[in-house]
Nucleic acid binder design. Structure first.
Lengths: 208, 208
DNA sequence: ACCGTTTTGGAACCACCGGTTTCGTTACTC
DNA sequence: GAGTAACGAAACCGGTGGTTCCAAAACGGT
């Protein structure tokens, strides 16, 4: 049985918050140095200067440890209304792009593989990350609709895939440089907003 | 030192091709049943009815074994000219989408994580997969340019990210159903072709 | 001041994994 | 028939994830 995540204190020694920070820092450093598959719990403990027991008291498994370090609770807050559909989408897309581009290249795919392999992790990811993102996009669409910027209201999931997907493929499938991400997302946003305001493209004249 | 991949026979017992098939089948089955991270070489050997030595005689590591099984040499052949930009793009996109959607959900992210962690694998992936895809897209753009379907010629890597990315995110980030992939890619193609033929969208009137 | 509770770093422990090697056997070429 | 290499099976090794135990230390309640 994995260790519990939250042991409430009616008494006894409180947790040392510097241990939490040391673990998180060690995980981030080791992800950069050895990559996701070669990260070991023993090395995290050694790097952080803590015992393995202190780690397992906070995180049940290696996968959850990395998940917790990379996706803290305060991920994707309520979106501020920036006055236009494009600005709103640019803000959330920039936040997602930065979250994907910050850890070393193999980290996000590795974490996704573990998420797909473990139903419990998959559920946590769905609520914490996808749910928040869906709510954010829905709110952005509400604002755009109120402004009259939309001719049709797209499905949030489809919109999410269309916006985040290219940056995703750019970084992890093509292994291209994060430096060129802003240009890619900017062009993508121009195209998406143009289509959304002009209505869907005319049906093609040549048969498929 | 890992075992060699190709030991040519001037004499001696030839390789049993049924062993190759048994290994590939076992890998595919086990990927479905236990997922990428929990696939073990011992179980592949047991499932295939084969000794571990026979596997390592063909594939140097577990990562390369899965890579070889999932991305055989004959991946992405020369693209037939289907007469229109949309049809050409639809053909290559359908092929890529099928390759991503066929193995179980965690497989592609897991393989990508290993590819990013191992420079040798990364090189093989870049030439075998990305190189072929880049050549295919370049050829498609040549045909479209000759037909006068393009106002500006996009960069193949950007085009690749814009086309494949949404399907990528749809399957592995959002964990949505592969059944709805054709609708997603079809709408995406309509939009992309409309933009490519009409020229880039008009610059936005509201400031960013 | 004392006691019970909990966390601390450190170390030991276990089952298992990836990878290599060895074994006797089998199938093919020269 | 001699030589060679692949075959299935099994043993082996270093290392890993995860669990548990330990004595010391830090806190709240009384």
């Amino acid at each position: 049985m994995p260790a519990r995540k939250q042991a409430r204190n009616p008494g006894g020694r409180p947790r040392d918050s510097r241990v939490d920070d040391a673990i998180a820092t060690a995980v981030r450093e080791l992800l950069v140095e050895v990559g996701y598959p070669r990260l070991t719990m023993a090395e995290v403990a050694a790097r952080a200067g803590v015992g393995k027991a202190a780690i397992y008291r906070r995180h049940a498994t290696k996968q959850e440890m990395i998940f917790d370090v990379l996706l803290p609770d305060r991920f994707l807050a309520v979106p501020p209304d920036r006055g236009s559909l494009r600005a709103d989408l640019a803000a959330v897309l920039a936040e997602v792009a930065e979250a994907m581009a910050t850890p070393p290249p193999g980290t996000v795919p590795g974490l996704l593989a573990d998420i797909h392999a473990d139903p419990a992790l998959h559920d946590r990811f769905t609520e914490r990350y996808l749910g928040a993102q869906r709510r954010t996009l829905t709110e952005i669409l509400d604002h755009a609709t109120a402004r009259g910027e939309l001719t049709t209201r797209p499905d949030p999931a489809v919109l999410n895939a269309l916006l985040v997907g290219p940056a995703f493929a750019w970084l992890f499938l093509l292994s291209e440089s994060p430096a060129e991400l802003p240009a890619l997302t900017s062009a993508l946003l121009d195209a998406a907003v143009a289509l959304a305001t002009q209505g869907p493209p005319a049906p093609r004249t040549t048969p498929a």
